[in-house]
Design a protein around this nucleic acid. Structure first.
Lengths: 199, 199
DNA sequence: GCGAAAATTGTGGAAATCCGCAATGGGCCG
DNA sequence: CGGCCCATTGCGGATTTCCACAATTTTCGC
């Protein structure tokens, strides 16, 4: 799934004109005539952004959006709508939609928003990759190593840690060295920064 | 300025009925017949949330919102509007408005949103107080102490720091102890966590 | 029950940290 | 000019960390 704009609209003409517009600006596109068609092809590894019509036969845009959110889809979603509906727009944005634009839209502005959405997605993906690598490293820790890590992050000295865990200082040192190794850090400070905010 | 909902609307009847509704639910209110009246009384120390009408004589709701944002007002803003306008709602929410509701609104839902907004404001205020205390402590550091702190946070050993700053290890130790003291931490790990994300 | 991984502990020495005591020099303010 | 704050440095000892070498016990799945 190469990064692209996923166009979901049951109106062939709109899909085609959108695809033409975006591709003429260098944005790759894929078209889907219904929410169900998109869901059938969607994978968590999908990259890019989504242009989603509100009113469609079968599953509606907001319904698809909810499903995708549940399934962990992080692609930015730009809603497209024919008739203004403030509560719907407000609900969509509060749920995390990237944008909500009314038809007819200004071509240049829409392209700009799509480009921004693609950029956001790329950044989110980088951040997610970091987070994944981090939790993978955390997952590789043994129980003891995790316990020691907690206490290290609490700023406690090895002697105190040994005391609290009822083990010898030497053992703490071993665990400490092993977990530093697994987490890819060289000092407790680096570890603290690596886990800043998380956990 | 005790925590309260600030009602800004040029329609006396709406202000009064809103005030009655909210106060009957235990939410203190203050009313302002225009954006200008509110601005005249507003101070950065104001607490609570804002219920803001879109269309008003003089400065409009969105205009006031922009001004408040510039001046660093962090109170959550709930926009109230008579006629649906999707682009305006989208713009307001993207700029950070707390909510955007159409009249006529559901009384209970609005009260709920106001209560949530007040809660958010209280939390933001706590966070801001922490941030202020932190930057106050950072500000009390001398130039050298700040330099040493940077390198400590980079996970460097005193020996290396002494080398980079071209001073003796003993001096580094002194600065380190002093800055730990000023920042109110006992270890480098605590310092790293205190500054997690910031700076 | 066997073998691998995890948890545990010891010894001992090099290196680093932590701290109190003591002191010098520069810059700024009243 | 004297006092105060900041930056600087040295000495020395108590404490801690870091590691290599070496080894025992526990746990857990096949």
């Amino acid at each position: 799934m190469t990064p692209c704009a996923h166009l979901i609209d049951d109106d062939d003409a709109i899909r085609d004109s959108l695809a033409w517009l975006l591709e003429s600006c260098g944005v790759a596109c894929r078209s889907y005539p219904s929410a169900e068609d998109f869901l059938a092809e969607w994978l968590p590894s999908c990259t890019g952004c989504i242009l989603l019509d509100i009113r469609m036969g079968g599953m509606s845009g907001p319904e698809l959006f909810d499903v995708l959110c549940e399934r962990g889809c992080r692609m930015p979603v730009i809603f497209l709508t024919g008739h203004g509906d403030v509560p719907m727009a407000v609900a969509a944005l509060k749920k995390g939609a990237f944008d909500f634009v009314e038809k007819p839209f200004n071509d240049n502005e829409l392209v700009d928003r799509v480009v921004e959405a693609l950029k956001l997605d790329a950044n989110q993906r980088l951040a997610a990759a970091d987070a994944d690598s981090l939790s993978a490293r955390l997952g590789s820790l043994t129980t003891r190593e995790r316990e020691v890590m907690e206490l290290v992050l609490a700023g406690k000295l090895n002697k105190l840690i040994a005391d609290e865990l009822q083990i010898s200082m030497r053992t703490v040192e071993v665990h400490r060295a092993n977990l530093f190794d697994k987490m890819g850090v060289r000092t407790a400070v680096e570890l603290a920064q690596l886990l800043a905010g998380k956990r």
